[in-house]
Amino acid sequence: MAISAPDGEPAVSNTYHKSRTWLLLPSWVVLGALSLVPAILMLVYSFLTKEFRGGVIWEFSLAAYDQFFFDRGLFGDDSPTLDWTYIAIFWRSFWQAGAATLLSLAIGFPTAYFIATRPVQTRAIWVFLITIPYWVNLLIRTVSMKFLLRDEGPLNLSLMAVGLIDSPLQIVNTNLAVQLGLFYSYLPFMVLPIYAAVERYDFSLSEAAADLYASKWVTLHRILLPVTKPGVIAGCILVFVPSLGSFLAPDLLGGAKNYMIGSLIEEQFKGNAGNWPFGAAASMILLTIVLVILIAFARQQSRLERGRV
């Protein structure tokens, strides 16, 4: 997922500069037509009028954004007041994604650190073990999680067998289940960038700190964490961003009460609400939030890089 900026690459070879256009043309055409143009059309659609059975009428309208932010009463003629329904769904998504990110960090940082301090020959195997689950179908992983957490599922049964609890814990259809699902979905994304950062870490810094009688946890807090910060932030972004727009975890694990942005958007196109301009507007708002996060991240990373040199 993490792509290094092209500028950071070693010297660029020049062998095929004459055929450059032809080499890149297929990717420009395909991605232009299927990524860039659709994104622009989505923006256009968010300003159109809704067609009741799905689709749009090509007439300019601000109704989608109006519906998102304002309440105009039952007949639409009251003076607009701020409507919290959809803002609350976005807020809940932030909160769920944030909780999943913190949980991933708590498990992911020690794991990444442990792997990065293994002998060089075994590191690749550890990284491989962490990545395998990522490549397993997200739907299957989410269903597996639901199966495991179910009231009469293996987790509850074994907790009861051990005697830790008397009656099954109700986890499915709660906020916790969604957080666990998101955490489980994107945990490998937390480990990999932190691993890369710790692997580059110069341990003579920790040795110097130990020589100066710093305790290990002070060293961790004051030296290791600040130095590996770019990796930690990258991991947090890689977990937070896909969590924010995720559909499967809230849909399968959360039930109707634990609605997130992904479910709201999906419903506009697949479900009964069928309001395409509103779905496009909600997608645009989500995309804008994600782009703001990514741009802030890129600027922060380049600031940290410059600070190092």
């Binding site: 092209p6 991605l31 990524s35 659709p38 659609y45 727009g245 995720s246 989500l286 995309l287």
Partner: peptide, 23 residues
């Protein structure tokens, strides 16, 4: 070009899905 190639990785999958459907 590099941004265009990595675009599908940056954008949340549900947004890609909506945009492609609309296209």
């Amino acid at each position: 070009s590099f941004g265009l190639i990595s675009l599908p990785l940056m954008v949340p999958e549900i947004v890609t899905a909506v945009a492609t459907l609309i296209f």
